[in-house]
Nucleic acid binder design. Structure first.
Length: 257
DNA sequence: ATGTCTCCGAAACGGAGA
C-alpha cells in the first residue's frame, strides 16, 4: 500500500501534471497540499474519471488540503487542526483509508521570523503534536504526512548558510519537530537515508532546480506499527523537472498490507 | 540577482505568499 504526499502549488494550474503523476505512479492514497481553491472549485470529477475518490478542505487563494484514495472513499475524521477556534486556515485534514489513519497537513511556513507568522507556526506545531499523541495513545495505525515546512537537520539542506535565517530551519522549528518524533513517530525518508542529501523542494528562483539547490521539508511520519510494515520510501524527483511543475516533488512510503 | 510562480481583484498590472 503506497501512501504519497504532494504539495502541488495550485490545483488549477497543476491539474494536468497531477493527473499524469496519479496515473503513472498510482498511489493507494495521495495527500495534496496548497490546492489554493475554495471547496466549490475542487475538480473532484477529474479524479473520479481515473478512479480516485476524494475529500477536501479548501480556502480562497491560499492553503487547502485534500485526500485522494484509489477505488475507495476516504472516511473523514477531522477537518481543520483542533486547539484554536480562531484559526480559519485550511491546513489539516484527517481520514481513515483501508484501516490506516491518514493525517494530511500543510504546516505554516513561518517567514519572516521572528514575528507573528513564526509564532503561529510554533503554536500550530504544538497543536499538531497534541493531535498526533491521541493516535499514538489509541494505538491507531497512522501516517502523518505533508508539507511540514521544517528542515529537520543540516544534512537535509543544500546550504546551511544560505538558509540560516529562514523559519524552516530555526532551532525552535527543529526542536518542535524533534519533540513530535520523540513521541514515537518514525520519519520514513530520514530512516532510509541516514546520511541525508535527499531533497523534496527546489525553489523556482535562481536556477535552484538546475543547480540541485534543494531541501527536505515534505515528510512521512509512521506510527510504530506502520513503521514495522515499511517496505520502501522515496521521492518522485523526476516530476519536479517537468514542464509546469510544482516547486515540490511528491514523496511516498510503501507499507506491507 | 529584488532571480519565479500562483493566486486574487479588478485588470490588462500590482500585491501577497511562498
Amino acid at each position: 500500500m503506497r501512501i504519497a504526499s504532494f504539495n502541488i502549488n495550485g490545483i488549477k494550474a497543476r491539474l494536468p501534471r497531477l493527473l499524469e503523476w496519479l496515473e503513472e505512479t498510482r498511489p493507494a492514497v495521495a495527500c495534496l497540499q496548497e490546492i489554493k481553491t475554495q471547496d466549490e472549485g475542487f475538480p473532484a470529477e477529474e479524479f473520479a474519471k481515473i478512479g480516485y475518490q476524494a475529500i477536501w478542505h479548501g480556502q480562497k487563494g491560499f492553503n487547502g488540503v485534500a485526500i485522494l484514495a484509489d477505488g475507495v472513499a476516504p472516511v473523514e475524521m477531522q477537518r481543520g487542526l483542533p486547539g484554536d477556534e480562531l484559526d480559519e486556515q485550511a491546513r489539516y485534514l484527517e481520514a481513515d483509508v483501508s484501516g490506516v489513519r491518514i493525517c494530511n497537513l500543510y504546516l505554516p511556513n513561518g517567514n519572516p521570523q521572528p514575528g507573528p507568522k513564526f509564532d503561529y507556526k510554533l503554536a500550530w506545531m504544538d497543536r499538531l503534536r497534541r493531535r498526533c499523541a491521541l493516535h499514538l495513545a489509541a494505538e491507531i495505525p497512522t501516517v502523518v504526512l505533508g508539507d511540514f515546512n521544517v528542515i529537520p537537520e543540516d544534512r537535509d539542506v543544500w546550504s546551511v548558510s544560505a538558509m540560516a535565517s529562514d523559519a524552516l530551519m530555526q532551532p525552535a522549528s527543529r526542536d518542535a519537530y524533534a519533540r513530535l518524533l520523540a513521541d514515537g513517530w518514525t520519519d520514513a525518508i530520514a530512516t532510509l537515508n541516514p546520511r541525508g542529501g535527499v531533497w523534496t523542494f527546489w525553489d523556482y528562483q535562481a536556477g535552484a532546480w538546475q543547480r540541485d539547490h534543494g531541501f527536505r521539508i515534505d515528510h512521512l511520519l509512521l506510527s510504530p506499527d506502520c513503521a514495522d510494515r515499511m517496505v520502501a520510501a522515496g521521492v518522485d524527483k523526476a516530476h519536479r523537472g517537468r514542464e509546469k511543475a510544482s516547486d515540490h516533488a511528491p514523496v511516498w512510503v510503501e507499507l506491507r498490507i
